[in-house]
């Protein structure tokens, strides 16, 4: 029960990108297309799950003082492995994500979860937490890239990452003359992110108000009895 609640929180309410403002660099930089978003999201999920599991498995062996250095080394090794795999099997993804694959090492989400959760909980719990946070990240980058790609090119499209020539789907929703190319520039990235983050804050405030009203109603009922 608690696990499912944590999982659901990680998706929307405590979304690592829009709620906790972690992993901002990669979110803003790569969300120009759906391909990039899904590729990066999957890479981050992989690294999160594996790093959480490894760190949780060795948590009793690592002396407390040097845990941060050890975590950094583990995460760096995992990211290098993932980078080499991407370079080998999906080179198109590698050239479009560029330097942001190695920069997963310093993505605040991964080290943060490792220190906060994986160092204190079992292997299976940590893996599930990795999945939850990773899916939250994937949801965030996917929503940003859908908006940005749609408004800046008018087309929602995705190509097979393993085979660049194969187009999986391509829908033109906005005619070519009405595209706003601002959204592929830094200005558009910042604006989209700010609006989505404000949207999440508005949703959270709304939920808080409802809960407070319900609590006040329950209290006044009790007082009336």
């Amino acid at each position: 029960m608690n696990r499912m609640q944590n999982f659901k929180n990680g998706l929307i309410k405590d979304n690592p990108v829009f709620g906790l403002y972690l992993g901002l660099c990669s979110t803003l930089a790569i969300t120009t297309s759906i391909n990039n978003a899904i590729g990066m999201g999957v890479a981050v999920i992989f690294v999160l799950i594996l790093s959480n599991m490894i760190i949780s498995a060795i948590r009793k062996l690592v002396p407390d003082e040097i845990r941060i250095p050890v975590y950094i080394v583990i995460i760096a090794t995992l990211v290098k492995i993932i980078q080499m795999l991407i370079q080998a099997y999906a080179p198109a993804l590698d050239s479009s994500l560029g330097v942001f694959i190695p920069l997963i090492v310093v993505n605040c989400i991964i080290l943060g979860r490792a220190e906060a959760f994986a160092s204190k909980n079992g292997v299976l719990d940590s893996a599930l937490d990795g999945v939850g946070m990773g899916l939250g990240y994937l949801l965030a980058v996917l929503s940003m890239s859908v908006i940005r790609q749609l408004l800046s090119t008018g087309v929602l499209s995705m190509t097979n990452p393993f085979n660049e020539a194969q187009v999986l789907f391509s829908l033109r929703l906005i005619p070519e003359d009405f595209t706003i190319s601002m959204f592929s520039s830094p200005l558009g990235a910042f604006m989209t992110f700010a609006c989505l983050a404000a949207g999440l804050t508005a949703y959270k405030l709304h939920v808080q108000k409802k809960e407070a009203a319900a609590k006040a109603a329950a209290n006044s009922q009790e007082a009336a009895k």
Binding site: Y21, S185, P186, L187, G188, A189, F190, M191, F193, A194, C195, A197, A198, G199, T201, A202, L205
Partner: peptide, 21 residues
Amino acid sequence: QCFKGNPIALIVAGLMAMAFS
């Protein structure tokens, strides 16, 4: 209310990006 804090700061950053460009 919902823009207070980080969201409005990000919009400012976007405007700075536009200025610098």
